[in-house]
């Protein structure tokens, strides 16, 4: 039996009172796995991950990290609890250097070891080390994504959550970024990945949850889901669109 590191139960959440976008979503992430949440546009995937991170008001339901109930923990305390989040857009401070972006994250921990961790991460992301003096706003799309991921790892989180890291990247870059996610998993960090790019996500995930209209509709091992006709029909039925391919979206 695997230990569950992140458990979300019956989460109802939305930006405006009375207009929930999540209508009772339940997902979980096991220790050392990459779990992915898939679903058509507007299914509430992004709202789900933001609600877990404390950025969208929760109406009811429960979020637990390990044994701790973090449902009502404010967004800025999540990282201290071991939950890191990489938003989809505007996920780096463009007017600050790469180094300042990382030092900012390290500073939150208020310990010397965090600064050592900055150097460790430069080792893990050699591209960033070469550009540490560059303003983050001048980085390419792929490098920005790497910086955002690196910055989330500074605190050595238990769970790393990513909101569509493939968005706007070329297939080649998606491959590089996702390869990095596998390396991160290998260090023992569990990952929750929300994706539009179904094929790429199923390619690296251990387990997948399909969301439709604010709740989870289907769940299973990533390897089997990739070929599951039920998933394809669910997906197609809900989105009335073809299954997104691995090609980069505009």
């Amino acid at each position: 039996m695997k230990t569950t590191v992140l458990r979300v139960e019956n989460l109802v959440a939305g930006y405006e009172p009375g207009l929930p976008i999540l209508n009772g979503a339940s997902i979980h992430v096991n220790a050392g796995e990459i779990a992915t949440v898939l679903g058509p546009n507007g299914a509430g995937k992004s709202t789900l991950i933001k609600a877990i991170a404390g950025l969208v008001p929760k109406v009811s339901g429960q979020v637990c990290l390990g044994d701790r109930d973090i449902t009502d923990v404010p967004a800025h305390r999540m990282i201290g609890n071991g939950l890191a989040f990489v938003p989809q857009t505007e996920n780096v401070f463009a007017t600050m250097t790469v180094d300042d972006n990382l030092r900012l994250a390290a500073g939150v921990m208020r310990s010397k070891s965090a600064l050592v961790r900055v150097d460790e991460l430069y080792g893990f992301f050699p591209d960033l080390a070469r550009q540490r003096r560059l303003l983050a706003g001048r980085l390419s799309g792929g490098q920005r994504q790497m910086l955002a991921v690196a910055r989330a790892l500074i605190v050595s989180p238990t769970v790393l959550m990513l909101d569509e890291p493939s968005a706007g990247l070329s297939p080649k870059l998606v491959e590089i970024v996702f390869q990095k996610l596998l390396e991160i998993r290998a260090t023992g960090i569990s990952i929750l990945l929300v994706e539009q790019n179904v094929r790429a996500a199923l390619g690296i995930a251990d387990r997948a949850t399909i969301m439709v209209e604010g709740r989870n509709a289907h769940e299973g091992a990533a390897a089997t889901l990739a070929d599951d006709p039920i998933v394809a029909s669910l997906y197609l039925g809900a989105s009335k669109a073809r299954l997104p391919a691995t090609e980069a979206r505009p």
Binding site: H76, M78, P87, T95, M96, D100, L104, A105, V108, V155
Partner: peptide, 20 residues
């Protein structure tokens, strides 16, 4: 760190919260 935090909040308060 406080100075970097101030610049961060000024640029993107939501991301600053995510960072802790």
């Amino acid at each position: 760190h406080m100075g970097r935090s101030m610049r961060a909040v000024s640029e993107n308060p939501a991301l600053a919260r995510v960072l802790g």
